[in-house]
Simulated scan of single mutants.
Amino acid sequence: MLSKYVVPGNRVEIQSAGRVKFTGETEKKKVYQTTVYDVVSEDRLEIYMPMEKSKLILLPVDEEFDLYFYTTNGLYQCFAKIIDRYKTDNKYLLLLELTSNLRRFQRREYYRLSCALEMNARSLQKEEIEAVEQNNNYLVPGLPLTRSIIVDISGGGIRFVGDYAYEQGSLICCKYHLLIDGKDKEYTLIAKVIAVRELDEHRGLYEHRAQYINIDTMEREEIIRFIFEEERKHRKREKNIE
């Protein structure tokens, strides 16, 4: 699939997928611009080492990154891990291995709606993680879930708060309800925890940011529709108050 959409010469944005630093509620991530050098296989590619002020940026091997490809078919996103750095033919390159599926990226997916939605979640079991790696969202039924609160939601993921901390990079099963077309619908989704922090103002409570994994296109579109419908209602209420 990679070679179908990504070709040498495509522009790439790369940023860390690991722990982020916060100043208040502002998320700080360094984004680097570079270019695809070669697509080695369907799960590996080479990109030029990014530069900043004429200096090479030596991104660490074995760290996972969030990649955005600007292609002739649109914008695509995936996660990938740097597995090597080297110089060849006077070119400084990074070899990356995909750790997620390549997917089309819609900017509107990441419009975040502030909310307060109840959610139940749990960490994935070993066999479930293995299934996810094979693009199969198999889940063991009947396992206990822990309550938390979603504080913002987008078509790409959620931010939630609970009195426990998942490990960064772990996969979790999330269950929550949304009102879709006037009907209550339960969503059971798999997400990857990309950031965790303890709240300064509420010790013992932990904020998580998680990104959906292998989400069905129809479910994503329903979540996006819910978000825009809620935003439309909010704006209407504000207008009536004025």
Rank of each mutant, 00 (worst) to 15 (best):
R197Q: 06
E130R: 14
A116N: 13
D89Q: 09
I223Y: 08
G9W: 03
D38P: 00
R235V: 04
M218D: 14
N90Y: 10
A17H: 04
Q15I: 04
N73M: 13
S170I: 03
E231G: 01
G157F: 08
Q33G: 01
R232C: 02
E52C: 04
I149Y: 01
F69W: 04
Y176P: 01
M218F: 14
I47D: 02
K183M: 14
Y37F: 10
K4L: 07
A121K: 01
T217K: 13
V161Q: 08
R11F: 11
M1A: 12
K183P: 02
C78K: 00
K91I: 01
L205R: 10
L145G: 05
R19L: 14
Y32H: 13
E127K: 12
Y70H: 13
L102T: 07
Y111D: 09
N10P: 03
K236L: 14
R147M: 08
S114E: 15
L179G: 00
M119E: 06
V132M: 15
E46L: 15
R225N: 09
G9T: 02
L143S: 02
K30F: 08
R232M: 10
E242L: 15
G24A: 06
C173Y: 10
S123G: 10
E127P: 00
G142R: 07
A121Y: 05
D66F: 09
I129C: 09
R104H: 11
A210M: 09
F22D: 00
N240M: 15
K126L: 14
S100K: 09
F105E: 10
Y76Q: 03
L75V: 14
L75W: 04
L96K: 01
D152N: 15
Y48S: 05
G24P: 03
D184M: 10
F79A: 06
E231H: 09
Y166T: 04
C174A: 14
L59V: 07
I83N: 01
C173A: 12
V20I: 13
K183E: 15
P60M: 09
I227Y: 01
H202R: 13
L93Y: 01
Y37P: 00
R108K: 14
R235G: 00
I83M: 01
L143H: 02
R11A: 13
Y86T: 02
R235I: 11
I153F: 05
F65W: 04
T146R: 11
L95F: 00
E13Q: 13
Y176A: 01
Y76M: 05
N90A: 05
